[in-house]
Amino acid sequence: MKARLRAAAAALILGGLFVGLLAGVRDLPPIGDPSSPASTHVSPRFIEEARRETGALNMVTAVLADYRGYDTLGETAVIFAAGLGAFVILAASIGGPRRETPGPGLSHRVDSLLLDTAARVLAPFLLLFAVYVLVHGHVSPGGGFQGGVLFGLGLVTLRLVWGPPRPDRAASRFGPGVRASFLLASAGLLAYIAIGIAAMAFGGAFLDYGVLPLGQDPAHVRELATLGVEAAVFVAVSGTVAVLFETIAVGVAETGRPLPNEDPAPVEAREEG
């Protein structure tokens, strides 16, 4: 009964929210309305000036990392907080009395020649492509966020195929990967903030890159600083992706039985010692 009441309350609140948002949407100008403020003041300014002011061919990058750098800083902080939140919640659940020491989970070593070879072939290209997406973000779609996610996924691929060979009971509350990933994520976020503060130190506003002493051409300076910000986002996001995978996937007990032609020894050894 109580659960039903709670569900009814949730439905009521969400329904009200939906109606309220719908009412709000009615006041918005139509999509693509050429006479809306966004189309008359904001967009033309970016479309006409972004190339000259920031040196970025891809306007999306110019807007995200330069004009709206403060928003992107907030986004990066939110992503970092998500990784931190997953870690805090799951660390509590693993350390609790209800669960024994986590097994190697999804991150155990997969003894498959095919997977091993494929990961060996694909992972370098995946990691390299992530860096390409980062540095090419000025010209083509992409940038720090997408590159960071791709890099993190490359790390996840490596972790899936070449996890630790044997669970280390003493040290495997989460394994060494989490600490390194957290270092990466924090370093990225701090680097972003540091770039903003560096702009203040040279007399500009927070995240006002144009004043940094990186050369004569202000557009080029902003381009370089944008690349720096994107690199910071890259590091923060790839670290957070790794944190999320390490905290959520590690501790998942491997279920199932070994294949007939497989050596069952590792499974037995894990259960006994």
């Binding site: 996610v149 995978f245 959520i248 279920t255």
Partner: peptide, 14 residues
Amino acid sequence: GALTTILLVAATFR
């Protein structure tokens, strides 16, 4: 497509 699906599968197993 990639990251969230991986995390959802992992969470399902967990």
